[in-house]
């Protein structure tokens, strides 16, 4: 029995999910292994003690206070005044026609401006890179919660200057698409769960834990979902080879390298 199997069976005992066959297997193992038996008994005792911690009742007026705090008009359904035909008719009024033409002009102008800016953007421009970074206090690890860009495929070097307050990515910051940042690293220095890359060595950080998204980026490179490191975030220097599109909103403290 591997350590993992043993842990799994102990957990099943604690949660009352163990089958008769599994219990017999566990008992047989414990008979042969005194250390494991001791660990098992200690774990069971610890978990039984946790059963002594009961539930408390929240304040009686908590629900009311929450409901008083939410903006009741936030998801209000706006009623449609008049029929769509009336709406169409309104478009033919001279003043509205003028306003509409003016608005279209502004939109077209903005689009043209942004396109021209895009043409002038250098490939190494990371000025639109942003994300959320956690400070280090999760099991002694610093956690980079996310890195993201707000545009399709920009690349450049970034330095993490300061750690934010988010320990993990908050749901409200969940990406619209998969996180899509590609970095190069030295396989000798970086350990990721479940994969090794033939590429490297380009890394400037030591990563203790982390995991990648379910898909590779091709050319032996992988897409990083999250990195855990005990390195001071201020010392991290990640070479971003290519960044995909991922839209985040919220607080971030990430700055491009100067």
């Amino acid at each position: 029995m591997t350590e993992e199997d043993f842990m799994g069976l102990v957990d099943k005992v604690i949660c009352g999910e163990i089958t008769e066959a599994e219990r017999a297997e566990l008992e047989a193992y414990l008979k042969q292994n005194e250390g494991a038996r001791r660990l098992y008994e200690e774990t069971v005792e610890t978990c039984e003690l946790l059963g002594k911690v009961g539930d408390l009742e929240p304040p009686a007026d908590l629900r009311k206070r929450i409901m008083d705090s939410v903006d009741a008009t936030r998801y209000e359904v706006r009623s449609v005044r008049g029929s769509s035909l009336l709406g169409l008719k309104a478009l033919f009024r001279p003043r509205l026609r003028l306003a509409l033409a003016f608005s279209i002009g502004i939109v077209v102008g903005l689009l043209a401006y942004s396109m021209l800016r895009g043409v002038g953007q250098r490939p190494g421009d990371a000025s639109r890179l942003y994300g959320t970074i956690a400070g280090g206090d999760f099991g002694g690890m610093s956690i980079i919660s996310s890195l993201a860009v707000d545009a399709d495929g920009i690349a450049g070097e970034i330095t993490l200057l300061e750690a934010g307050d988010l320990l993990v990515v908050a749901p409200e910051l969940a990406p619209v698409t998969d996180l899509d940042i590609i970095i190069e690293f030295d396989p000798e220095q970086v350990r990721f769960e479940g994969f090794a890359s033939p590429d490297g060595p380009r890394v400037t950080l030591t990563v203790e834990e982390g995991y990648v998204a379910s898909h590779g980026a091709g050319d032996g490179r992988y897409i990083i979902s999250r990195i855990d490191t005990s390195t001071d975030p201020a010392d991290l220097n990640i070479k971003v080879i290519k960044a995909g599109r991922a839209v985040y909103q919220g607080e971030f403290r990430l700055s491009k390298q100067r």
């Binding site: 929450i66 903006d71 936030r74 998801y75 749901p171 409200e172």
Partner: peptide
């Protein structure tokens, strides 16, 4: 709860 509501 307020955050959940706002981000629903």
């Amino acid at each position: 709860f307020i955050r959940a509501y706002e981000n629903l």
